[in-house]
Design a protein around this nucleic acid. Structure first.
Lengths: 153, 153
DNA sequence: GTCTAATTTGCAAGTCTTGCTAACTAACAA
DNA sequence: TTGTTAGTTAGCAAGACTTGCAAATTAGAC
C-alpha cells in the first residue's frame, strides 16, 4: 500500500474527497502487519475517532482493495482480512494463536498444477498452517514435564 | 472419502444411525469432483428426497469433515465447499466459470516459508487462480476477430 | 460564504451457517 | 412383531459478517 500522503494525493486526483475518516484508516493500515479484519480496524479507529461507523470502514477498505492497495485474505475463519502488503508474498497461519504472518516463498511462482489440462495460471497463493515460534516456545514452557522440573527446585 | 458402504459401517460402529438422509448424502458425495457447497448438495438431494432439510445436509457434511472424510475449502466466495477427495492435493480456480479443479503439485510439500522464523509447518495449501481450458477455448471461439472471419465465409 | 457532488451514518436486509427443540426413527432386545 | 430409547431430522430463529439504501453531512471548488 502507498503511504497515507500518497493515497491522499491519489484520492484527490480521482476527484474523491479526503475525509478525516479516510485519513485515519490510511494511517491505521500503514505498515500494519496484523492482517486485521474490518471489525479490528473499526475498534481501533473508534478509539481515535468516536462515532466513525463500521460501514465507513468497510467502504474505505473496499475502495482501497479495488485500487489494488490492499490484498484481501480469506482463510475461512468467518471474516475477510486486509493486508496492506501487496508484494508477491504468501501467508503462514498459526493454528494456536491465529496470527497470520507474511512470508516469502522461494519457488512459489514457478509452481504448476500437474494435471489440470491447459489451465492458464495467473496467480498462485500458498498458505502454510502450523504453529508459530511464539506458541511453540509457550508450549514448551508450560509442558507438564518442565513444570514438574521447575517445581522441584 | 470412503465409499458409501464403508461409511455406513463406520457410522454404525460408532453407535450412530444410518439414516436414508445420510445414505443419500454419502452417495451424492461419492466420486464427486464438483466441490459443491452445502446448498448445491441440498438442491440435488431435495430432488431425490423431497423434504430433506438444509440443516441435515450441513450437519452430515460437518460430521464427515470431523471424521476426516471431507476436506473443507473456503475460497472467499461466500460459502464453504466440500471436497470428498482428501488426498494430498491442491486447487485450481477458474476466474471465469468459477469451477474448481483438483490438481497435484510437484514440490508443494517441500515449500518452506522463507522468513517466518521457526514457524512449524504442518500443512501447505496451494491455490492457483486463472482460466480453465474450457473458458479459454470458449473465449477464442467468441473473440470478435474470429467471429469476423467466420462471418466472411 | 455558497454550492454541489461525494461521503458518512445508521439501519435494514441478505447470505451463510449454527443453536435449539419437538417430533421422528433406526437399531436392538424380547 | 412390538416396545424402548438414544440418535436424528426438520424448521425456525438467531448469529456473524457484509452490503444496500436514503437522509444528513461535508470536502473541495468558485
Amino acid at each position: 500500500m502507498h503511504s497515507p500522503a500518497e493515497l491522499a494525493t491519489q484520492f484527490r486526483s480521482m476527484g474523491r474527497k479526503l475525509t478525516p475518516q479516510r485519513q485515519l484508516i490510511f494511517s491505521l493500515l500503514h505498515n500494519n502487519e496484523t492482517h486485521p479484519t474490518a471489525e479490528n480496524l473499526y475498534g481501533i479507529a473508534s478509539a481515535q475517532m468516536p462515532g466513525i461507523s463500521l460501514r465507513t470502514v468497510y467502504q474505505t477498505l473496499n475502495e482501497l482493495a479495488e485500487m489494488g492497495e490492499l490484498q484481501l485474505i480469506d482463510l475461512g475463519e468467518g471474516g475477510m482480512r486486509f493486508d496492506p502488503n501487496v508484494d508477491d508474498h504468501h501467508h503462514a497461519v498459526c493454528g494456536v494463536c491465529g496470527k497470520i504472518r507474511d512470508v516469502h516463498v522461494k519457488g512459489a511462482a514457478s509452481l504448476k498444477p500437474n494435471d489440470a489440462g491447459d489451465f492458464m495460471v495467473s496467480d498462485v497463493g500458498v498458505v502454510f498452517r502450523g504453529k508459530c515460534s511464539d506458541c511453540e516456545s509457550r508450549a514448551v514452557k508450560r509442558s507438564p514435564v518442565l513444570q514438574a522440573k521447575v517445581s522441584k527446585k
